[in-house]
Every structure is written in structure tokens, then in C-alpha cells.
Design a protein around this nucleic acid. Structure first.
Length: 641
RNA sequence: GCUGACGUAGCUCAAUUGGCAGAGCACCUGAUUUGUAAUCAGGCGGUUGCGAGUUCGAUUCUCGCCGUCAGCUCCA
């Protein structure tokens, strides 16, 4: 007999093979109606799968996030049901639930069109209306092979299943799928669905295999949730840095230099402001250096890039031999090692932190390029620390504080991931034990939660990655702290220890913003283009009411500029026109100078996004407040009514 | 790289079945002197991404190239 413990502490004893549906019904008919699936000791199964074991028994209703995944998986089946009705010749691949919805892969002779999607969506509504139950069946391998005799992809999957695995199928109306489940009780649950896009996807993600047609969609229990999700997608499009970057005249991509942004004068101010911010923070305990962009292949052979990373490097061919013998640098590390090697180092210098803002080039495949987030030319706020092994814990703590402080400045929340030793790696276990312990100690000293990623470390050492979540909840990997035991060996890096022997340092690779290009892309979306004052390319637009007030307005502009603020005078067109333009360009402040202000030595300040509420301030007060707002890198305006 | 969609004025978009390529904004000129999100009028602006082909005729149909966008196992 199986013992099921209900959340209220009650227990039910049932024979093995009992259907969860019957247990739920015995608790209450209303609950049965609301039940999507159940969880036994945390394992989700559907209402129609016989119970095999007892344990904590939870009924999942539409409020449980695990139920949403079940719904979406079922929605994928409903999609396949619809596709099979309209395109019977389509072979079915996989159709899982994913983070924001689901997809299903089909093998078809001709790709789907947007019109097809609309037709599939309409057909899905009919399938939902029919309320086909999802019938689970556990079948023999032979039966499964017979059922899917016409679906080669499914046959391949069956072939991969181990001899002891249960093979199950789910049937909804006319459609049978090889599937582990679980599913919602019937197709009538799938009412709030949207098919979003279609694209090619390699069978099992393998570019050597055939390309299938994937349909992405999303599904929710309630219409409001679907609408809210679609609204979020809309919002993300509105904030898209490629759209905003063009509207605010920050950067341009030209077809003749794919993956290499042109920065306009406004974008360059933004870019340089960020670089200066990092440079300021690194003035004290770091050493900024500049190294060449172009290197003989001997360096890349020594670093291992020539063998492992060559496809991603921009190679320069020798005129005489026609062979590549030089490359633009894709990373800074080797050049930092070269500089380190140009003289002897004492243990007293360590930790020695080289930082660089040099330009890097990586030949990303054409299909991977995207706006500022995936480029071929970029600069990192890159740092390589040379240190003694016993300094690792303190150093990692120091670097973590540095990185987290950077994100805090922008109001970005970071999530930490700790990646430990992978299968293939250099160094012995004792070394990895020490390195992982040091990273872990530093992590725990922060008191922040972190996610453990076992086996995800680099081959040369464990690492901490910093994922930043932007204002609409998307995660981006930016910063990293990576221990490296391999490079010092490969480059024979040494320092003289206090006992006058030569010892090998450890290297730490550190990045904070990732690349400035991508970081700016993220900031554009994070702030939706409305940058805080210190970052805004144009900080104040001064608007005289009429032409005769231009001298007075010019004096205000001069006062702002004298305080180092980026202020511009704008005299053309009507006041309304100029205000609209400044709002559209997301200029943080507008300073209107009318007759009253000119006589009183004040300005009428309009704050970006605050509408017509204005604050009248003496010019000196306005300058002082803005200077403070800039110097403190405030995220919110200091001028308010 | 692969699959699909797309590429028209600086920007956002139109253009019946293949028949003289348009609009708004921006820009320029003039008038207007304005109190918080577009004053009015006129003007400039295009070898329709590039190159071939089919056709009397191509933005439209075909092919190649370049670029952009979406996606390319969060495992039946």
C-alpha cells in the first residue's frame, strides 16, 4: 500500500496503481475540477498516471508555476494535433515546454509561413473546443515502434531509450505522441495560446543533421496572463536597443562593417563616460596598460588560440606566402602575459592587476551578429591579476566587491553563479580543491545567494559568473572571475618569492561590463533610453521663450557648461516643438527662459517624463543641483517639485 | 555557417494583375515671437541594397552576392 501525505497533514492509504484523479476526487470535487496535475514528493505527474509510490502529495492548480509547464507542454501537443490535421505529411520531432512557452519541431518539405501559423492557431482553438482527453498509455517497445512507424524522428528517439525505461504515449483525439508527460486532463485547458514565430532548428541541435521547422508559442491559464505576457514582449520591443539607439542617435551599423558599430557623437559621449567611470574606479589599485592589436602567430600558437580558437580570429595573410601568419587579438590575456614577462617580478608586487580597454576582434559567424549584444569588434574592461595562491581568497573578495559596486551604480541586480571543475581539465585535484574552496569562501563572505554549476568551469580553473537582470527581467551574463592555473604554465610566468626562489603565480581573468558595446546595449534597454544624468549624452536643453531672450538663455547655457554640464541652447521653432523634441530625445532636463525668468535670474525647469509640472529655480541653484546629481551618479532626478 | 523572412528618400512606411516611385517626419527657405509634447507655407531629396537574367517594359518575376531580423535540443 502507498501512503500519501496531504499538505494539511492528513494521510491517505491507497493501493499502488491508484489514479491520482481518484485521490483528488476523494478530497473534493471542486479540487478535482481545478486540478492540473499532482506532485508526489515533488515529482509532477498527471491525474491519469497510476501512482507507483507514496510520499508528500500536492495537488497542482493553475496557481502553481509547475502547472504552467504542464499546460505549455500540453499546448505543444495541441499544436502538433493541429499541424497534423492540416499537414498530415509532417513528421513530428520534439515539443517541450520552455521558459516562456513551448515549441514543437516538425519535418516538412516546405517551411511554414506566417499564414500557416494563423491557420494552425485557428485549428488549435477547434482542438481545444473538442476537449479531447489526454490519454496516457504505457506500451511495449514493439507497440511503440509500430505506432510511430511513419515518424522516423520518433523511431530514433525510441531507439535511444534504455531497456528498463517505461515507454508511454499520450493520445488527444486524432493525435498520438511519444511522450513522458505529464499533461493536463484534456485539451479544453489550452484556450489562451499564441503562436509567436517559426524558424529552422537542427534536429537535436546538431548542425550536421537535417533542419526541422520549429514553431514557438506560449500558453497561459488565464487570458489576462497571456495578454500581460504579450504586453511584456511589446515592451521589450519598444526598449530594443537597436530601435532606441537609432532614435536617440547613439550608434549606427553599416553594411560594410558588419558587427562593428559606428558611435555617433552622442553615443561616443556615453561610451567614453562609461570608460572613464571604470578608469576612475581602477585608478588606485590597478595598472592600466595598452598593448598591440596585431600579433605574430607565434603568440597564438603559444597561447593555444591558433589551434582552438582560430575560426574566430581575424587572420592576416602574408603577401609572399599567402598564408596567415598574423592575427588581430581576440582576447587580451596573451598580450598581458607578454608584458608581464618583459621583466622580473617580486612577490611584493602581487597581486599585480593589469587592466586594459583595448579593442578586440572576434570573427563571430554572420548569423550570430545582433545589434550591440553580439558584435565582432568591441572593448572589454578587462583585468588580469597575477597573484600568489595564498592571496586568492582576499583577491576574489576584492574583485567581487568591485564588480557588484559597478552594477549597483546602474541599479542592476546581479545573480551569481559558481562553476566548478569540468570533466576535462588541467591540474591535479588538490589544486582544484584549493581553488574552489577559495572562490566559495569569497562567495559566501558576500552573504549573497549563488547558484552552483558543477562541471561548468573552464578547463583551466573554476569561475564565478555574474548574471545581471535588467528592468524587464531578462538575464545577461556580464562579469566573470576566472581562476587560471594553465596560462602561467604555458607562458612560464614567474615571480621571485620571499625565500629568493622562483615561483609560479596564479592568474585571475576578470571582466565587469563584459564588453562596453554589449553593456551599453543592456543599459539602453534597462533605462529605455532615459539615462541618468551622469550618463545622458545631452544633459540639459535650454529653451528661450522668444528670440529676444536668446542672450539670457545663452548666459544660462554658459553657466551650465562652465560647471561641466552638457547643455545646449535651442532657439528654433516653437517652444512646444522644442519641448517635444527634447522629451523624445530623452534629455533629462529642459530649462525654459521666459521674460519672468530672465528678469529674476531663474530658470523654469521641466524634468524629463514629468509632464508640464515645472520647478522654478535660481540659475546657480539649478547648476548646483545638477552638478550634485551628476557627481553622485544619482539614478533619480534631484530636481523635483 | 545553416533555415526562413525581409531590404523603396536620413527615419517610419505606401505603390492594383509587371505600366511615368508616393506620404509623414527630418533637412533647407520664408513668414510667425509663441509660457510647457509637433505654427503655417514653399522647397530639396530615390540608378527601389548590389549584379545578372526573363520581358516592349521590372520596386514587382528568376538567379547570385551583400546586409538585417528570428531561430538553430531550458531533452520523447
Amino acid at each position: 500500500m502507498l501512503v500519501l501525505r496531504l499538505p494539511d497533514g492528513a494521510e491517505r492509504t491507497v493501493p499502488p496503481g491508484t489514479l491520482p484523479r481518484d485521490v483528488v476526487a476523494s478530497i473534493g470535487p471542486r479540487l478535482l475540477k481545478a486540478a492540473v496535475a499532482v506532485a508526489v514528493d515533488g515529482e509532477v505527474q498527471d491525474l491519469g498516471t497510476p501512482l507507483r509510490r507514496g510520499g508528500a502529495f500536492t495537488v497542482l492548480t493553475d496557481k502553481d508555476p509547475r502547472a504552467l509547464a504542464v499546460l505549455r507542454h500540453s499546448a505543444a501537443h495541441v499544436l502538433a494535433t493541429a499541424v497534423r490535421r492540416l499537414r498530415p505529411e509532417a513528421h513530428i520531432g520534439f515539443g517541450p515546454a520552455i521558459d516562456d512557452g513551448f515549441y514543437y519541431d516538425f519535418e516538412v518539405a516546405t517551411p511554414f509561413t506566417p499564414d500557416d501559423l494563423a491557420a494552425f492557431e485557428a485549428e488549435m482553438a477547434l482542438v481545444a473546443q473538442a476537449a479531447f482527453p489526454f490519454d496516457r498509455a504505457e506500451v511495449s517497445r514493439e507497440a511503440a515502434l509500430a505506432t510511430f512507424a511513419d515518424d522516423p524522428l520518433k523511431l530514433e528517439r525510441i531507439g535511444d531509450l534504455g531497456p528498463d525505461e517505461i515507454i508511454s504515449t499520450y493520445t488527444d483525439g486524432p493525435f498520438v505522441d511519444l511522450c513522458r508527460g505529464p499533461h493536463v486532463p484534456d485539451t479544453s485547458w489550452i484556450r489562451h495560446v499564441k503562436l509567436l514565430s517559426t524558424a529552422g532548428a537542427y534536429w537535436r541541435g546538431d548542425e550536421r543533421r537535417q533542419m526541422l521547422q520549429r514553431i514557438y508559442g506560449t500558453a497561459f491559464f488565464r487570458k489576462e496572463d497571456l495578454d500581460a505576457h504579450l504586453h511584456r514582449l511589446e515592451e521589450a520591443r519598444r526598449r530594443d536597443h537597436r530601435v532606441v539607439g537609432k532614435a536617440l542617435d547613439l550608434f549606427v551599423l553599416h553594411p560594410t562593417a558588419p558587427g562593428a558599430p559606428f558611435w555617433t557623437e552622442r553615443g561616443t559621449i556615453l561610451y567614453n563616460t562609461l570608460v572613464e567611470f571604470v578608469r576612475d574606479r581602477q585608478r588606485e589599485r590597478f595598472k592600466e596598460i595598452k598593448t598591440p592589436l596585431l600579433y605574430n602567430k607565434a603568440l597564438w600558437e603559444q597561447s593555444g588560440h591558433w589551434g582552438k580558437y582560430r575560426e574566430n580570429m581575424f587572420l592576416v595573410h602574408n603577401d609572399e606566402t599567402g598564408e596567415p601568419d598574423t592575427s588581430l587579438k581576440p582576447m587580451n590575456c596573451p598580450s598581458h602575459y607578454l608584458l608581464y614577462l618583459t621583466k622580473k617580478h617580486s612577490y611584493r608586487e602581487l597581486p599585480l592587476r593589469y587592466v586594459t580597454f583595448d579593442v578586440l576582434h572576434r570573427n563571430e559567424v554572420a548569423g550570430a551578429l545582433s545589434g550591440l549584444t553580439r558584435v565582432r569588434q568591441f572593448a572589454q574592461d578587462d583585468c588580469h591579476v597575477f597573484l600568489r595562491e595564498d592571496q586568492i581568497a582576499d583577491e576574489v573578495k576584492f574583485l567581487m566587491d568591485f564588480i557588484l559596486g559597478h552594477y549597483r551604480t546602474f541599479g542592476l541586480e546581479a545573480r551569481l553563479k559558481f562553476a566548478t571543475r569540468p570533466e576535462t581539465r588541467v591540474g591535479d585535484d588538490a589544486m582544484w580543491d584549493r581553488a574552489e574552496a577559495a572562490l566559495k569562501a569569497a562567495l559566501e563572505a558576500t552573504g549573497m545567494a549563488y547558484e552552483l554549476k558543477p562541471g561548468d568551469g573552464a578547463f583551466y580553473g573554476p569561475k564565478i559568473d555574474f548574471d545581471v537582470t535588467d528592468s524587464i527581467g531578462r538575464a545577461w551574463q556580464l562579469g566573470t572571475i576566472q581562476l587560471d592555473y594553465a596560462a602561467p604554465e604555458r607562458f612560464d610566468l614567474q615571480y621571485t618569492a620571499d625565500d629568493n626562489t622562483l615561483k609560479r603565480p596564479v592568474v585571475i581573468h576578470r571582466a565587469v561590463s563584459g564588453s562596453f558595446e554589449r553593456f551599453i546595449g543592456i543599459l539602453i534597454e534597462h533605462f529605455a533610453g532615459a539615462f541618468p544624468l551622469w550618463l545622458a549624452p545631452e544633459q540639459v536643453r535650454v529653451l528661450p521663450l522668444t528670440d529676444d531672450l536668446e542672450p539670457a538663455a545663452r548666459a544660462v547655457t554658459d553657466a551650465l557648461v562652465a560647471a561641466g554640464l552638457r547643455a545646449h541652447l535651442e532657439v528654433r521653432e516653437s517652444l512646444n516643438y522644442r519641448i517635444r523634441e527634447a522629451e523624445t530625445m530623452k534629455v533629462p532636463y529642459m530649462a525654459v527662459v521666459g521674460k519672468r525668468e530672465a528678469e529674476a535670474g531663474t530658470v523654469a525647469v521641466r524634468v524629463r517624463g514629468a509632464g508640464s509640472k515645472q520647478v522654478v529655480l535660481p540659475v546657480a541653484e539649478f547648476v548646483a543641483r545638477l552638478s550634485r546629481e551628476r557627481d553622485t551618479r544619482a539614478l533619480e532626478p534631484l530636481v523635483r517639485d
